[in-house]
Design a protein around this nucleic acid. Sequence first.
DNA 1: GCTCCTTATGTAAGCGCTTACATTCTGGGC
DNA 2: GCCCAGAATGTAAGCGCTTACATAAGGAGC
Lengths: 340, 340
Amino acid sequence: MSTATVSRVLNNPNLVKPETRERVLAVVGRHEYVPNSLARGLMTKQSKTIGVLIISISNSYYMEITEIIQRRLREAGFMMLLAATDDSADLERRYIREFASRRADGIIVIDASDENFSDGFFAKESAKRPFVLVHSNPAISASGIGQVFVDQRLGMRRVMEYLEGLGHRDVAFLRGEKGFSFDIKEAAWAEWRAERSREVRPDLVLRVADGNSEDAIPLADAAVGAAIREGRLPSAIFACNDLMARGAVNAATRAGLRIPEDLSVVGHDNTILAVSGRVQLTSVDLKMRDIGAESARLLLAALSGSSAGRRSARIEPELAVRDSAGPAAAADSRVRGGSA
Amino acid sequence: MSTATVSRVLNNPNLVKPETRERVLAVVGRHEYVPNSLARGLMTKQSKTIGVLIISISNSYYMEITEIIQRRLREAGFMMLLAATDDSADLERRYIREFASRRADGIIVIDASDENFSDGFFAKESAKRPFVLVHSNPAISASGIGQVFVDQRLGMRRVMEYLEGLGHRDVAFLRGEKGFSFDIKEAAWAEWRAERSREVRPDLVLRVADGNSEDAIPLADAAVGAAIREGRLPSAIFACNDLMARGAVNAATRAGLRIPEDLSVVGHDNTILAVSGRVQLTSVDLKMRDIGAESARLLLAALSGSSAGRRSARIEPELAVRDSAGPAAAADSRVRGGSA
DNA sequence: GCTCCTTATGTAAGCGCTTACATTCTGGGC
DNA sequence: GCCCAGAATGTAAGCGCTTACATAAGGAGC
């Protein structure tokens, strides 16, 4: 019995006579033969492996995306190589090279670094193999790279529209010190004000040193607490993520403000934190599952070579409306100490 | 210039004359040559890849473990293949085969299925390549398999000790309907009572249908709310995870009980939920980072062939003491309507 | 029974590397 | 100038597969 026959049994069973097939299968089963994918990949030039790059593994946002990606990949017979870049453009590059070296059939980069986009690195990689970028950067969205564009500007406008509808003219903006995701949201927030000829008041922007870790909760708590004491908080506040939104709620509650009667709070990301407390947070839902599903879909489509179909997708965030935001009417007078 | 020389430049630079080395490196750089790890792995019999198996990706518990594992693997020059089993023993097996086929140099299985342990599958796999199991199952801990044993029984005893010290004689037990992690905690809880000749009262055990998803919060809320109304809640309650603990806190607060004055609550897992609300939860810390670090350490040690050193580790959970549990004295009279 | 076509199996090349072994350089000692 | 050890490089085999091509084995048709 030649190795070729065995190979055929495993890959094209219909090419071999049923009885021979049985015989081979029997031996294979008895000896617990495990094919060597490395050798197979060397011949077939595909590894049935996809590389996925995220910024941090212990971040529910990325994990929700990754979970659905992994599920889709499994269904399509692929395995997932996962790595975290810690937001380092250098590590991002190194990992992409590593994926390439392992002959990953495709690569998904979630929240890719600006640097590697602007110097053309992504464009070059994108030409070599199926490649999908998940991001919120309008600059990238204009490029020809396969991508899932998360329209955060739209998300922000939906928040502002909603609050405006509730009568809130001024909305404080709570963000972490640095991070692209904070910048892009603040830009949309400022744009909204500018469009309505409202001064883009810097005093409305509250900043905490670290907006992404657990510490963001107490930090936001402190920042908002101070703003309340100093009477410079308007009737509503938007927080760039649910961590900070929780901190804001805690501060307000401690200060004796009721939510949403005295202060409206809107969070972002719609994580478990939004529904964990007594007051359920109204929060922007980035549709993580859709993001994951779309990136997997785009990659798989590119992989199957069906050059038909879109090479990119756009995700529209939605506002998950809950209890933490309400009409502005009563609020103004309370928060500002009845000066209205 | 022969391929052998190139190979040497890349793997044993000192074997080749500096100037040749330079020449090779120059060409390599110019042509953006990316070595083929598949071919390399075929020769060297190692893929520099580790397979990691968890139950669910979008679960902060597993992700915290995975994050540190990935970091350690990177430092040691390995990449991580990650897959989720959805708690299916069959998928678990299939993925392990898949890892084997891809010639993963080692495998880590987190919260492995009972089934694949008891039928000897893990033992067999463990013999083939470095293999580490992370679990809380005393049965496995007695086996010779490389492992990180998380002593949940000890964690429970620390909770009970702590509450006993605060004067709580009876502690309600809040769990999800099914799951090994719930069972093992309940067993330790019952054991504690039995040791003190206290009846293992079934009415002290509250069950919610789904203890692990987001729904656990409102479900726990409802269950605890009912128990409060029916006056069958003792002065303290332990929840098998922070989700349910949050639900308990919400229910108690709504019912007008103060925490911890009127009711003591202890959670489990010490996740972000524990510190997200106004009342900070006392919660069992399973030392996720230690678990991840230990599993990576054990695997890497096995990989480097240093047969010295332990083949297993034991993790001792600790109680992260915060504000949600306090002395029982006042509580008894309030919760039970002053019948004491 | 012979040809011819189809179907089933075997043969061997080659995927891109590493590495044992063979060969060629190089230069110090005489 | 010659010898020889050691360093530098080349040669070629082989890792475990897949697959084009060659060969063998069945029938069907006459």
